[in-house]
């Protein structure tokens, strides 16, 4: 088929993406999905990392579940909670799955009332990547290393998106436990933090490395420390601290980094269908075409599957009361 005619289907796809349907009786395993439509919920608006990963996963899972159609549906809002709630509450027939921010572990840990999901009970299908956290410092700042940052006499401005976002929570907790001289300014949504760094309004951020790669490559900033990830060009924060409370906190954040770009369904998907979804997910992650695309996009693929992911999530949900108190403090209203 020519590229032009494939493009023509785009206009139709736009309309189709808005209209969804799904009911069905039961059969077994992969056969069940023949002729069925799976809704893949992405808990953000179109564009951006979650949407890109979500659309790739949907496209290649469809390919490896013969006869099925996987439709992406964006359900943005309330820091991924609308999408996560929708996935959790969906009918557990295997026809609704989706992706959201792993940071919702924090919301569950402190028992936020608007979080109507239990991550431990969800049907885990897999995760696509690790997303290391980095301390990024603007290029014009004299702070060259973690030691420099810790030694600052006066608090330096750091930026974060909304209060309650994963990056915000992590920055607040690290600032408190490591006693860093950081004054955190919030409300830098989208790429506003990068511009603020260029203007010199803020000196740095603690956030996901994948977001900052182009900015750092353009020479506007540098990394001084990292949590998680397998890159070796930046020192791991865990090696720079000695305090045991700090090490425990860094370990918690690291589990967040390890389970990134996840895919999950509601609790109680029949075992044979869940197995079929997991195997389709695995085949998608190993699909050569998908790997070529993600490499072009600069999106890392470091997958893990099914029960492995469930164990990681369970581990992250086992936190000492001290850590939970720290979290609650970080998420507490100012």
């Amino acid at each position: 088929m020519s590229r032009i005619s494939r493009l023509l289907t785009l206009a139709g796809g736009l309309i189709a993406s808005a209209l969804l349907a799904a009911p069905a009786p039961a059969q077994s395993g992969a056969d069940f999905f023949k002729g069925k439509t799976i809704t893949y919920i992405v808990a953000t608006s179109p564009g951006g990392g979650y949407d890109t990963y979500g659309r790739l996963v949907a496209e290649y899972m469809q390919r490896h579940l013969p006869g099925s159609t996987v439709v992406v549906r964006n359900m943005p809002g309330a820091g991924h909670m609308i999408g996560a709630n929708a996935i959790f509450a969906a009918k557990p027939d295997g026809l609704t799955i989706g992706t959201f921010n792993t940071g919702l572990i924090y919301n569950q840990l402190i028992g936020q009332s608007a979080a109507r999901f239990d991550l431990e009970r969800m049907s885990w299908i897999g995760k696509a990547a690790n997303d290391a956290r980095v301390i990024t410092i603007a290029q014009q700042s004299p702070i060259m290393s973690y030691r420099d940052l810790a030694a600052q006499k006066r608090p330096v401005n750091f930026a974060a998106a909304g209060i309650g976002s994963a990056a915000y929570v992590e920055t607040v907790m690290l600032t408190a436990v490591l006693k860093l001289p950081i004054k955190l300014l919030t409300g830098y949504n989208g790429n506003a933090d990068m511009l603020a760094m260029r203007r010199g309004e803020v000196v740095g951020t603690i956030s996901a490395r994948s977001t900052w790669e182009p900015f750092v490559r353009n020479g506007y900033a540098r990394y001084i420390a990292q949590i998680g990830g397998d890159q070796t060009d930046v020192p791991q924060l865990a090696t720079l601290v000695t305090d045991s409370a700090a090490k425990a906190l860094i370990a918690l954040i690291q589990t967040q980094c390890d389970v990134s770009r996840l895919t999950a369904g509601p609790p109680g998907i029949p075992a044979d269908r869940l197995a079929a979804l997991r195997s389709a997910y695995r085949m998608a992650m190993e699909d050569r075409e998908l790997l070529t695309k993600t490499e072009k996009l600069g999106l890392p693929i470091e997958p893990a599957y099914g029960d492995t992911v469930l164990q990681m999530i369970k581990g992250a949900l086992q936190q000492s009361p001290e850590t939970v108190a720290l979290l609650a403090e970080a998420l507490k209203k100012k």
Binding site: G77, A78, G79, M81, I82, A114, I163, T186, G187, K334
Partner: peptide, 17 residues
Amino acid sequence: PNTGTPRFAGDFLFLWD
């Protein structure tokens, strides 16, 4: 934007943004 508290939105998540 300053405190992270939902205002006039309560538990209605669709109003949080």
